[in-house]
Design a protein around this nucleic acid. Structure first.
Lengths: 234, 234
DNA sequence: TAGTACTTCGTACGCTGTACGAGCTACACT
DNA sequence: AGTGTAGCTCGTACAGCGTACGAAGTACTA
């Protein structure tokens, strides 16, 4: 019988790469909670247990996915001023983490970094060293910057929607929870219980809005400038 | 009404508070992954489904647990300099998050904050406002500081052991993964592939060590000073 | 004492990660 | 060309998960 399967037919074989890519796509589309081995296998038109021939277990599947995300982050360019380079890398990191919100909790807390992660870490450290930072300060700077970047991403993760509407969304959300919690708190006047919070949420954010990108870069520049001062003071 | 006087019987009834406390204790002892409704019920000597009369579902159980953690964070003291107050609060947050590592990923990313969370947020904003920060800068400062604090906690979460030994632990871990990943990377000389990383990991951290508390306060003071400058420049 | 409301919890359903092993496929070497 | 073998696929099964449902027990009010 003539059964042509040598062509580009749907009978595509699995591979570690295909599995990881499908996993990332699924996480982006439906969120990390929807990523189960069975769903992922379905997505690939395979049986669940087939996956285990290309990935040892779910934990290492996540490791692989995380490294894909690391691979999307722009390395700090060499040959330009360190501050500009670090800024580019930081902004790129935020963008990537925004695209892959599912990864935010996983990136920093995961053991056993993959090659892309190592490459990035090495490049960042190199950028600082070449920028004239002594070792101790390099480590400090690296730690501080990464803490800020990932912490900011963590904050952003909790807001439901994308760029444009997010501020309004946050405000609404906050205001509603505000009322809710105030009820539990037995007080009728919530603004009285939390006046400063009310001032910010109802008074300012509701009117002026809040732009994450601007806020991120504000803090980023604050840090970069402060680090530069520290370096020159040494 | 809600507090029976003669509750010294071994036949302790369940209550939302008892459930939440047991849940936190379990998470501290065995980690958040070990927290299941059945295990928690066992811990309380009850059936699994009994819990649902005191907590609507697991999601809100986690919300309640998180709010307990927020409640342990020291509010920024009033009546003293804002920088000192913010420092105290930041250091306290790090301590609490270190005691409750299970909570780190959950604190910031959780919707619907509880009363303790609201109280803390309000106090922090108030501290900045009373410290002479205009509203816009207050929001920025708040965002930057929290991003840093929680991001740092996220980093710390991944290191296995406590205070003293952690540096050595990190180094060993890093070095091992280093070798591992370099193997995958096909190169034999890992130090050649990631020279800066090698310099830091093998060269400096291995010898001098790395103290998280010091690193945290370095970045914290960097931020606080920078924010003060920003305030005075306005 | 009866009625009512609240609490407890056994059972069950559909989901999860994955161990096991039977069958299939593809390629290497006679 | 035939055969051996190594790797891949996947059906089945198991323990554990969150939780819907409803029966039984307990406590308190009238």
């Amino acid at each position: 019988m003539a059964n042509p399967k040598s062509a580009t037919e749907p009978r595509a074989r699995l591979s570690r790469e295909r599995v990881l890519e499908a996993a990332v796509a699924l996480a982006v589309r439906d969120g990390i909670d929807s990523l189960s081995m069975r769903r992922l296998a379905d997505e690939l038109g395979a049986g669940a247990m087939s996956l285990y021939h290309h990935v040892p277990n779910k934990e290492q599947l996540l490791d692989g996915m995380v490294d894909i995300v690391f691979g999307e982050i722009e390395l700090p360019p060499t040959g330009i001023e360190w501050k500009t380079a670090m800024r580019r890398r930081a902004v790129s990191t935020r963008e990537v983490l925004n695209r892959h919100r599912w990864a935010v909790g996983l990136m920093e807390s995961r053991r056993s970094p993959g090659p892309a992660s190592l490459r990035l870490h090495n490049a960042v450290l190199g950028c600082l060293r070449e920028g004239g930072f002594p070792i101790e300060l390099t480590i400090q700077a690296y730690s501080v910057l990464d803490a800020y970047i990932y912490g900011f991403a963590l904050q952003e993760k909790s807001v439901p929607f994308d760029d444009a509407e997010e501020s309004a969304e946050v405000v609404q959300e906050q205001a509603r929870q505000f009322a809710e919690a105030a009820e539990e708190e037995q007080s009728a006047a919530l603004a009285e219980a939390f006046p400063y919070l009310a001032e910010v949420v109802a008074g300012h954010v509701a009117e002026v809005g809040y732009d994450f990108a601007t806020a991120f870069e504000f803090g980023l520049d604050l840090l970069l400038d402060a680090l530069e001062n520290r370096r020159d003071a040494a």
